[in-house]
């Protein structure tokens, strides 16, 4: 029983360490826009939804 717990704990520890070290693998070719998924940050709120009352 104890050995089982120990092995599970060791495995968990190893996983935690690995998770910390791993990096996302495939990097898309930065020079080709084809299929690139990008994020665009916009600021602020849409004026028409602003409150009109106090």
């Amino acid at each position: 029983m104890k050995r089982k717990i120990a092995s599970i704990a060791a495995a968990t520890a190893a996983l935690v360490v690995l998770a910390g070290c791993s990096t996302p693998s495939e990097a898309p070719n930065p020079d080709d826009a084809k299929g690139q998924n990008i994020t665009f940050w916009l600021m602020g709120v849409t004026p028409r939804t602003l409150s009109v009352t106090t």
Binding site: A33, G35, N37, F40, W41, M43
Partner: peptide, 21 residues
């Protein structure tokens, strides 16, 4: 409009995230 045009141009997805000032 931006999302559609971006898809047309690259086939990729454009995600727009709004940040408060």
């Amino acid at each position: 409009y931006l999302k559609t045009e971006y898809k047309k141009a690259t086939g990729g997805t454009l995600t727009i995230e709004e940040q408060g000032w």
